[in-house]
Design a protein around this nucleic acid. Structure first.
Lengths: 199, 199
DNA sequence: GTCTATATGCTGATAGAC
DNA sequence: GTCTATCAGCATATAGAC
């Protein structure tokens, strides 16, 4: 049952956020009593495990894309493409992470300890930085700050997924139209980032 | 007192979101009883008035920027610049609107009725579309879908402000550093959008 | 208009039987 | 491990005195 609680909790946290999801609701969907959700851990503990796992998975995708040794254009294309694809089965993740980090200073602190100060993840950024400098010196791309590039790609990707429910409802789109829209934005973002990077 | 309740409520809704803000907290900060917050209206009613007012103000800024008759580059520059400046005194607004629209299907429905189906705002988009087509035909900019351009600018702008608390805490930035970062992103976004639009 | 007092419901969490 | 029963706290909202 522990696994089922985690699965259901994850889905509900994704869909509604932490504050809007009650342990009672989790229990109801799992089909157990509310007390059982608390037997293992507190709500905050349950959340943290799920949150951490998801962020790690996302960072993993980014990490793997950095291993790409082809041309920089291909690298950018693949990195954005991989990220889009991994999010297509998890479209609520970007908004979920954004929401919890924006609303909860405690979690930002937790993330700083866990990731920013962690050599493994600091290294990811160093690799990205090094690769970018190398391509600049070879004249393949224009001079650009690695942090700026990172934020730009994150902005375009995260917003695409975070605004999906808005987009769907405001413009009365069907599920198929939404899928098409995401595919279109993926291609468009790749195209734009490449253009931005042109010398 | 009615005005003070609205002012305080607005600030708290901005900072914490709708769900996390209680009428008790509003009353405490106003300095009146909790019952008084309910004398005029329900919490949802109070929220809607504030929400509507803020979205209208934001749309107004966008509307005014469209009136710019100078070169398209100047127009883009001014539009983004105006939006950034108006948000600098209201940095929580983009996240606030995003959060409430993502989390609440009722409010998306409300927004669709209020804005998408409203000729005044449909016209804003038509104006933008017309201007873009005109500049394309004159060969000043590359061919681009107006909706794509809109979403791209929104992504870059909204994410800059929405991620501000994250950015500040994760990288331990001072308030001055944050201001500098926002100014930097503003310039960078203008530069990128111009480059994307180059023929 | 602003108050006190209170209704009603939901929350997270715990104690303790089996 | 899973249950029942129950707690204390906080939420929104309302009734009614002044």
């Amino acid at each position: 049952m522990e696994l089922r609680i985690r699965e259901v909790a994850q889905q509900l946290f994704f869909e509604q956020g932490y504050a809007a999801t009650s342990t009672t609701q989790i229990a109801k969907e799992v089909g157990c009593t509310q007390a059982l959700v608390h037997y293992y851990r507190t709500k905050e503990n349950l959340f943290r495990q799920i949150f951490l796992e998801q962020v790690l998975a996302a960072l993993n995708v980014i990490g793997r894309s950095l291993a790409n040794e082809e041309s920089f254009d291909r690298f950018i294309e693949q990195a954005i493409s991989m990220y889009f694809d991994s999010l297509s089965s998890n479209p609520r993740l970007p908004y979920f992470v954004l929401e919890e980090l924006v609303n909860n200073p405690e979690r930002r602190k937790y993330m700083r300890e866990k990731f920013v100060k962690n050599p493994t993840y600091a290294m990811l950024y160093m690799q990205f930085d090094a690769r970018l400098k190398q391509e600049q010196q070879a004249g393949h791309i224009t001079k650009i700050d690695p942090f700026d590039l990172m934020i730009t790609i994150a902005s375009l990707t995260v917003f695409t997924f975070a605004s999906l429910p808005m987009f769907q409802d405001l413009l009365s789109q069907t599920d198929d139209q939404v899928r098409e829209y995401v595919a279109h934005r993926k291609a468009e973002i790749i195209r734009m980032v490449k253009k931005i990077l042109k010398p």
